Amino acid sequence: MSSESEPETTGVNRRAVIGTGAAALGGAALGAGLLAATGCADTAASQLPNTGEIVENLQNSTHLFHLTSADPERFDGGTLQGAHEGSFPVLAGQHGSVYFVRLEPGGIREPHWHPSAWEMNYHISGTAKWTILGTHSDGSYRTQSFEAHPGDLVFAPQGFFHYFENARTDAPLEVLIVFNTSAAETNDDIGILAAINSIPRSVLATVLAIPESALAGIPTDIKPVVVTKRH
C-alpha cells in the first residue's frame, strides 16, 4: 500500500518525535544536507586513490567477501553486517558498499539521511514499513509511506530523510542495502537522535510547537543509534 501525506507532529515523547515529528525535523535539516551533498561528494572524490592505485588495488585484493559470515554489529533491534572499504579492501575507490540488515520483530532502522550517498534496498524476507521524506521541484516536502515485501526494491535518494521498520511480530526482516559510497555507513549517516541533540532545546521546542519541558525525556547523546527496537 502506498500513500502520500504531509508529516504531522502528534506527541511529546521520544517515540513521537522519532516517529512523526521526526519527519518535520528531518525535512528542516534536509535542505542543508542537500546543499552540502555536492561539496561532500567533490571532497570525497579528491581523496580517492588515483587511477593507477585503484588498478593496483584491484589486482592485489581478494574479490570474495563472506558477507553473512562477517562479525555483525549487534543492536537492541537487530544486526548489521557490512562490506565496505574498511572490511573489503577491493572496494577502495569503487564508490560501492553493501550491508545485510536483519531486524528482529519490533526492530527499527533509526530515521536518518545520507549527505553524500543514495541507497538501494533489496528485501529478502519479511515485511518492512517505509517512510521517505524529500524535497520536490515545487518547493514542497512530500512523505511517501508504504510496505515492501520479499523481492521488492526501495530506492532512497541521496539526502532524503528515511527509515524502515519490521512490520511483523512473528518473523525477522532481512534487507540487503547497496550504497554508492565505499565508506562505512556510519561515516555517511546522520541519525535523528544526533540531529535532535544538535539543536538547543528551546529551538527544538519552538519548531515542534511543544513545551520545552516535554523534551526532558529525550536522551542527550550525539551518536548513531542505527538499529533500535520498540519497547
Rank of each mutant, 00 (worst) to 15 (best):
Y99P: 00
L103S: 09
R102H: 04
V90N: 03
R102G: 02
G106A: 12
P89G: 08
Q94Y: 00
V101S: 04
E110K: 11
G93S: 06
H84P: 00
S87F: 02
V90W: 05
S87W: 00
V101W: 01
I108S: 06
S87H: 01
G107W: 03
A92R: 14
G93T: 06
E110I: 05
H95A: 13
E110Y: 04
V101H: 05
H95R: 15
G96Y: 07
G106R: 05
G93H: 09
A83Q: 01
H84M: 01
F100G: 08
H95Q: 10
I108G: 01
V90R: 12
E104F: 04
H84V: 02
P105Q: 06
G106S: 08
R109M: 07
G107V: 07
P89D: 05
G93Q: 07
H112R: 10
V98Y: 05
W113N: 03
A92V: 10
G86I: 03
P89M: 09
P111Q: 06
H95I: 02
A92D: 01
V98G: 06
Y99M: 12
E85R: 13
A83S: 10
F88N: 01
V98M: 15
Q94P: 09
H112N: 10
G106E: 12
G96K: 03
G96R: 04
I108T: 13
H95S: 14
P89A: 11
Y99N: 15
H95T: 03
P89F: 04
H84A: 11
S97L: 10
W113S: 07
Q94S: 13
H112C: 03
P111N: 08
Q94H: 10
W113P: 00
P111D: 02
G107C: 12
P105T: 01
S87M: 12
F88L: 09
I108Y: 04
H112V: 06
L103E: 08
R109L: 10
G96P: 07
L91P: 11
R102W: 00
P111C: 08
L91M: 13
H84Q: 02
V90M: 15
V90P: 11
G93M: 07
P111E: 04
E110D: 13
L91W: 08
G106Q: 04
G93R: 08
H95Y: 14
R102Q: 14
Y99D: 11
Q94T: 05
G93A: 04
P105K: 02
A83M: 05
P105L: 05
R109G: 09
G106D: 10
W113G: 01
G93Y: 07
F88M: 11
G106L: 10
L103R: 14
V101I: 14
P111K: 04
H95F: 14
E104P: 00
I108H: 08
A83R: 01
E104R: 13
H95E: 00
Y99T: 11
G106V: 08
S87Q: 06
W113T: 05
F88S: 08
V98C: 15
V90E: 05
L103D: 07
I108V: 15
